[in-house]
Computed example of a mutant assay.
Amino acid sequence: MFITIQKAGLLTSIQDQGRIGYQHIGVTTGGAMDPLAARLANLLVGNSENESVLEMTLIGPTIQFHMDTFIAICGAHLSPTLNTLPLPTGKLLFIRKGSTLSFGKTQVGCRAYLAIAGGFQVSSVLGSKSTHFPAQFGGVAGRACRDGDQIKIGQWSEKQRNMIQVYTRLADSKSTYFRSYFITTPLPKEGSRPILIRIIAGPQYQHFTEMSKQHLRRTPYRVNEQANRMGYRLDGASLSLSTPLEMLSEPVLFGTIQVPPSGQPILLAADAQTVGGYPKIAQVASVDRSLLAQAKPGNWLQFQLVDVQEAQSLLRRQALQYDIMKQALRMKWRQIV
């Protein structure tokens, strides 16, 4: 069982929830930029949460299916069509053998995730199938998908196989069936208003001038066109230290906001290095990671400073909402004979 990438799109790669436990040897966690959307797409098709998915950025691919299967699309809206007919996102979709799935330019958000029953059968490196672009391993030979790539599909579970067989008998050669339930994930609202991102003070926050702190909290920053999976360069008010600061390199994470000598902040992303030597003025609260991953070049970010306790409370609330969706989706699959 396999699919063919007929057109690869702007940046399409295989990702999962990343490599945990290797940052001490310089291997970044990586994985899906929007882990929430990837997890929910997997749950919709009956996979484990950590199964591999296709991450599609800004302009999506064209894919041909060589078997009947289930898919789900979560995250950004990249105008998906199946055999030229519009497809919904956030739903379980039955796809017939020979069908062609096409994505266009993004309408809302930046990154969409395609999950398929059984996941993608690629080699696991350090416990993950994720494409690690800096070191060129994982995924499809450590690189983005290319035109003509054929990617094998993993084995179906018994419930997935039974359900696909049922739908194969019910559907005619041109039909695509949608399950009635659907889910949504955090996406920026299109328009001129900045995307609100909660942050907590970084280790060197107190070393910045009062004016710089006010700029960070009160003035929006634009995501530069150089934004990628390693980080977002931000354009806006310059940030500066009160006095020069000698620093040793320290650990950094997804969402760390560093300030280089230019004064224009850099917001680190999934494939960023594991340590950095620039002063860290702030850290994006984990609750807003998915929203941040959906910001695209040209979007404006407005930062809101919160304390650690509030950030933890917001994350617990999001986790509770996710658990409710997860249990509902698992219950649906348990009902399958």
Rank of each mutant, 00 (worst) to 15 (best):
S180P: 13
G236L: 12
R222M: 13
N162G: 00
K159P: 11
R146E: 09
I197H: 02
G236R: 09
R217F: 08
Y232M: 06
V223P: 10
I164L: 09
N162I: 07
I199S: 05
P194A: 07
V223Y: 07
S180R: 15
S128L: 01
D235C: 04
Q204N: 10
D235L: 11
P188M: 05
G236S: 08
G236V: 12
A141G: 01
R217C: 08
Q204H: 13
S123Q: 15
I164N: 03
P220E: 00
A171M: 09
K97N: 14
E158G: 02
L114W: 10
G118F: 04
N224G: 12
R143S: 08
G148E: 06
Q226S: 09
F133Y: 02
I153R: 04
S130G: 07
F103Q: 08
P194Q: 01
M230C: 03
Q107H: 02
I199M: 02
I197V: 07
A144L: 04
S102I: 07
F120L: 00
S99W: 05
Y221T: 02
M211S: 09
Q206C: 10
F137Y: 13
R218C: 13
L114T: 12
Q107D: 07
D235I: 10
I164C: 09
G104Y: 05
Q136H: 05
Q136K: 15
I164V: 04
T131W: 09
A227E: 11
K105R: 02
A171E: 08
A117T: 14
K159Y: 04
H132D: 01
I200H: 04
A237M: 05
A112S: 14
T131Q: 08
S192R: 06
K159R: 11
Y232R: 10
T209D: 06
P194S: 04
W156H: 05
Y232A: 08
D172G: 05
S102E: 12
Q150H: 01
F137M: 13
G139P: 06
Q155D: 10
E210W: 11
F208E: 06
V108N: 03
M163K: 03
Q136P: 07
E190V: 00
I197G: 12
P203I: 10
E158Y: 02
A201F: 06
G191Y: 05
T185N: 03
A227S: 13
P188V: 05
R169Y: 00
I183T: 11
L170V: 08
T219E: 09
L216F: 14
F133K: 02
I197N: 12
T219M: 05
F133Q: 03
H207A: 13
N162D: 10
G138W: 08
G127C: 10
G119W: 01
T209V: 00
L216H: 14
Y232E: 04
S157Q: 11
S124H: 11
R222C: 09
Q206D: 11
R233N: 02
K213P: 07
F137G: 06
S173Q: 14
R161E: 05
A135L: 14
A237V: 12
Q107P: 01
P203F: 06
W156Q: 08
V122F: 07
R111I: 03
T176V: 13
Y167T: 14
G191P: 11
L170K: 14
D235H: 07
A237N: 15
D149A: 06
P194F: 04
K159C: 00
I95F: 12
Q121S: 12
Q121W: 09
R143N: 01
Q165Y: 00
K129G: 04
